[in-house]
Computed example of a mutant assay.
Amino acid sequence: MNEISTNIVFLSLGTNKGDRLSNLDNSIQHIEHKCGKILNISSIYETEAWGNNDQEAFLNQVIEISTQLTAHELLAEVLAIETLMGRVREVHWGPRIIDIDILFYGIECFNEPNLIIPHPQLQFRNFVLIPLKEIAPDWVHPLLGKSVEELILLNPDKLAVKKVLRS
């Protein structure tokens, strides 16, 4: 009998278009329905836009899930959820209804044209690290060998991250 593998995954959610709170809630519902069991949800944080700051502020959140999907299947599902929710990719780092990024897929690492895990920029983004610290402060980045707490201390990002709603 084959044993089904379960993986712990951290996802980053971000939105700055439309009803931002509903966008986060809806994405979490879709993720739970299509991707796996929600194990932990961070508070919601408001942040200035990163990379392209000529746009509305974002609401960001990090969730931890348990999934039986492979990393490739998970990527396909989160992209499908973004599309279902109305995301259109027009401008790099532009405004969006929802953005779902795979931060970590267990301790596995992928470096493929369409799949890079751990997320290659997470250690430079307070809007990811601060909510991640709330739910997994001791999680160790498998490539950098540093905990989330340590990554925050080393992070040069100076954009403010303000907690707006507790989980």
Rank of each mutant, 00 (worst) to 15 (best):
S22T: 04
S27M: 02
G145C: 08
P120L: 09
Y45K: 10
N126P: 07
L154Y: 02
D101S: 03
V148M: 06
D138R: 04
E149S: 15
V78Y: 03
I130F: 03
F104A: 04
L39Q: 12
I44R: 15
N16R: 04
S22M: 05
H72S: 11
I117T: 13
N114M: 10
F104R: 04
I41G: 04
E90S: 15
N52M: 01
V88H: 09
L24C: 02
M1R: 13
I65N: 02
D157H: 03
V91R: 14
R166E: 11
L165H: 07
F127T: 13
G18H: 09
C35Q: 02
P120S: 13
Q29C: 01
S12N: 14
N111G: 01
G18D: 09
L159N: 15
F10A: 05
K133P: 03
L154K: 03
V91A: 08
W50K: 09
E150H: 06
L21E: 15
T6F: 01
I63W: 10
L165M: 06
F104H: 03
I98C: 02
E73L: 13
F10L: 05
L143G: 00
G94Q: 09
D19P: 05
A80N: 04
D25F: 08
N26F: 02
L69D: 06
V128D: 09
E48F: 03
F110H: 07
D99F: 10
G94D: 14
E46I: 13
S43T: 06
L165A: 08
G94V: 14
E46H: 02
I8C: 00
G14L: 05
N2D: 01
L143W: 00
I44Y: 11
K34T: 07
L129D: 07
W139S: 05
N2L: 01
N2K: 07
D25L: 09
I81H: 06
I81N: 06
G18C: 13
V9E: 08
P118K: 04
G14T: 05
V62P: 01
E48S: 15
E3R: 07
I152A: 07
D54R: 05
L75G: 07
A80P: 00
F127M: 13
K158L: 13
L165D: 01
E112I: 11
E46L: 07
N114A: 09
F124M: 11
R87E: 07
S43G: 14
E77H: 15
A49T: 01
C109S: 14
N114L: 12
L79N: 12
H141I: 13
K133L: 15
H30S: 06
I63H: 12
D25P: 01
N7I: 00
I98H: 01
L79D: 04
C109E: 06
D101F: 02
E82N: 10
N60Y: 05
Q123V: 10
S43A: 05
R166A: 14
S147K: 09
V148Y: 10
L129Q: 06
T67R: 09
R125S: 09
L75K: 12
E32I: 03
L154A: 14
L153P: 03
T83Q: 13
L122Y: 00
S5E: 13
V140E: 14
A76D: 12
L115E: 08
N16F: 09
I130D: 02
D101L: 02
W93K: 09
L84Q: 08
P113K: 12
P137S: 06
I135R: 01
K34D: 08
R166W: 00
L39N: 15
E149N: 15
